[in-house]
């Protein structure tokens, strides 16, 4: 992957790579509390069947996982372990935060022992709200993550940048927008793809608040 390391990759090849990446995701399931059972239902049960989306549950170790699904309450005692497991995962890696507890503390917002949101420990790409979310909601979160991966500038990810979309990179290269996503001139001709949000926020399933 010499091209990727240099930070340059032809766009068609990127699209091909992205597509294959998004349909062969190994998910490391991080069942911590109640949500773990709903996650188990989504991953392990014949009714929901996550494998039809090209997601492979149950890797042997975080070292061969592409994304992690943190489901459940993260306590202050568990937090170092969560961080360490995240660091063991290879790049590029993504995280889904499942359930209110992992999103923001949920019903334990005033507890003395609960970490108020796993995003204090690891960067989160998709929030799935609910207490616990239905398995369908988790599946939607996974689909949204796949769409994001398909649209990702892989080279930027390799360089260690935050999430960057392909369109944005192209716009930057064409001198239309600066690195912060601000338009440089009004006379530019944006590519035919719709311009995505220049400041990529995490996705929230359902679009509401993360609680």
């Amino acid at each position: 992957m010499g091209l990727v390391d240099k930070g340059r990759l032809p766009a068609p090849l990127t699209k091909l790579f992205n597509m294959s990446r998004s349909y062969s995701l190994w998910v490391y399931q991080w069942g911590l509390a109640c949500c773990a059972i709903e996650m188990g239902a989504a991953f392990g049960s014949p009714r929901y069947d996550v494998m039809r989306l090209g997601v492979i549950p149950l890797p042997a170790s975080p070292r061969q996982a592409d994304f992690v699904c943190v489901s459940g309450t993260v306590t202050d005692k568990m937090a170092p372990a969560v961080r360490r497991l995240w660091e063991q995962m290879p790049e590029p890696k993504y995280a889904i935060s499942m359930g209110s507890c992992a999103n923001c503390g949920g019903p334990y917002w005033d507890s003395y022992s609960v970490t108020k949101g796993v995003d204090q420990l690891i960067p989160i790409d998709v929030y799935v709200p609910g207490c616990p979310p239905r398995p369908e909601a988790l599946l939607e979160g996974i689909v949204l993550l796949q769409q994001r991966i398909k649209n990702e500038d892989m080279a930027a990810k390799w360089r260690g940048d935050e999430f960057t979309t392909l369109q944005r990179t192209r716009a930057v290269e064409a001198g239309e927008v600066d690195r912060d996503g601000e338009l440089i001139s009004d006379t530019h001709s944006v590519s035919e793809d719709p311009m995505p949000d220049p400041d990529p926020e995490p996705i929230v399933v359902g679009g509401g608040p993360i609680e």
Binding site: A33, C34, T73, T75, A81, Y108, D110, S111, S113
Partner: peptide, 27 residues
Amino acid sequence: YMHRGYEKLTEVRTFPQVTTLVNRIDW
């Protein structure tokens, strides 16, 4: 690793609110 402090939290909830919490003990 999963201590969420139920017994303390029940002291700052009303009776109908407590069921929302204790629901999640044996999930």
